[in-house]
């Protein structure tokens, strides 16, 4: 599948933004968020900034942005529409939460509950994002049990990295939080490795025989219907070079999971402003790594249309 920049940025940034919002809800209920309107303003600006940047990027994928409002109408059948609705509805409790934290200066009483509801809505939003891809049967690398948990896990993981960096920068880092964040990064790493393992070993279905209705024997494409590229090949016949894939996977693992985990452990040992800098760097590094991870999520995925064109699978 063609890795469109707009969608790569969209899913990565909103994943981190909504993941952060989900954790703010949790931390608010646990009473771990610092009092003070300024702290609230800084945190919520980062959270909303990530979400807005992501949502704005998603509209870059549309050819008719003036009709984008229509995407809120088909939530009965479409996961993309459900995502649009959930993404926007989340702003109601999230806005109340931000108002309470910034205006009243503390996360208590109704603000706490608004935060909890916002957090749940944020989780629902990430879930719907994952379902857009997991529900597509023609893309076997997405139509797996790994996709939705992956989106939730990477969203929460990057959200936690950002939250850890923020709380450390504001001087309100709960004890041991970097270690917890590092553990979540390792969990993300293992989930990614398991997803790739599954991808490499899953049965390649359907077959070209099934796609053409020619049941027996080997079926080989000898002539395409057209002599140059077309929409189908550009959009769904994207193939990634093997050597690039190996390197990009290393970058995704290093920057997206293992590097940040290592930095977080170092920050726990270092403490002080040096530790804060390390945590900020870890969060930024992770976002870069996840952009590469998300690019690969698209680039390595194959569509059944490649069967008709006799294109080999890129992921095996």
């Amino acid at each position: 599948m063609h890795p469109a920049k707009s969608i790569v940025f969209f899913t990565t940034l909103t994943g981190a933004g909504y993941g952060l919002l989900a954790l703010l809800g949790l931390f608010g209920v646990l009473g771990l968020l610092p009092a003070g309107g300024l702290w609230g303003a800084i945190t919520m600006a980062i959270c909303f900034g990530l979400i807005f940047a992501g949502l704005l990027s998603s509209t870059g994928h549309l050819s008719h942005r003036e009709r984008a409002w229509r995407a809120f109408t088909q939530w009965r059948s479409s996961w993309l529409s459900r995502e649009a609705v959930a993404a926007v509805l989340t702003f109601v409790p999230a806005g109340l939460f931000a108002l309470g934290w910034v205006g009243l200066g503390e996360v208590a009483g109704w603000t706490r509950w608004a935060g909890a509801v916002a957090g749940l809505c944020a989780l629902v939003t990430i879930f719907t994002t994952g379902m857009i891809y997991a529900s597509l049967k023609p893309v076997m690398e997405w139509h797996t049990p790994f996709t939705v948990p992956g989106y939730l896990l990477y969203g929460l993981m990057s959200g936690l990295s950002v939250l850890t960096a923020i709380l450390s920068g504001l001087g309100h880092l709960p004890d041991g939080l970097p270690l917890v964040a590092a553990l979540i990064c390792l969990l993300g790493f293992f989930w990614k490795r398991a997803s790739w393992y599954y991808m490499a070993h899953q049965a390649r279905l359907p077959s070209v025989n099934s796609a053409t209705g020619l049941g027996e024997g080997t079926v080989r494409s000898v002539q395409w219907p057209h002599s140059s590229q077309n929409f189908l090949l550009k959009e769904m016949g994207f193939r990634i070079a093997r050597k690039h894939r190996r390197r990009l996977r290393l970058i995704a693992q290093g920057c997206g999971f293992l590097g940040p985990a290592l930095l977080m452990v170092l920050a726990e040992l270092l403490e002080g402003p040096g530790g804060s800098l390390l945590l900020i760097f870890a969060a930024a590094l992770q976002l870069v790594g996840l952009l590469v991870e998300r690019w690969l999520f698209f680039a390595e995925a194959t569509h059944t249309i490649s069967l008709y064109y006799g294109l080999g699978a890129s992921s095996s």
Binding site: R67, A71, I132, K137, P206, L232, T304, I305
Partner: peptide
């Protein structure tokens, strides 16, 4: 009504939409 998100072309296994 189409906004050009192309998701339908991904959802079609037969490459029918262009």
């Amino acid at each position: 009504k189409c906004i050009g998100c192309k998701l339908c072309s991904w959802a079609c296994p037969y490459g029918a939409r262009e």
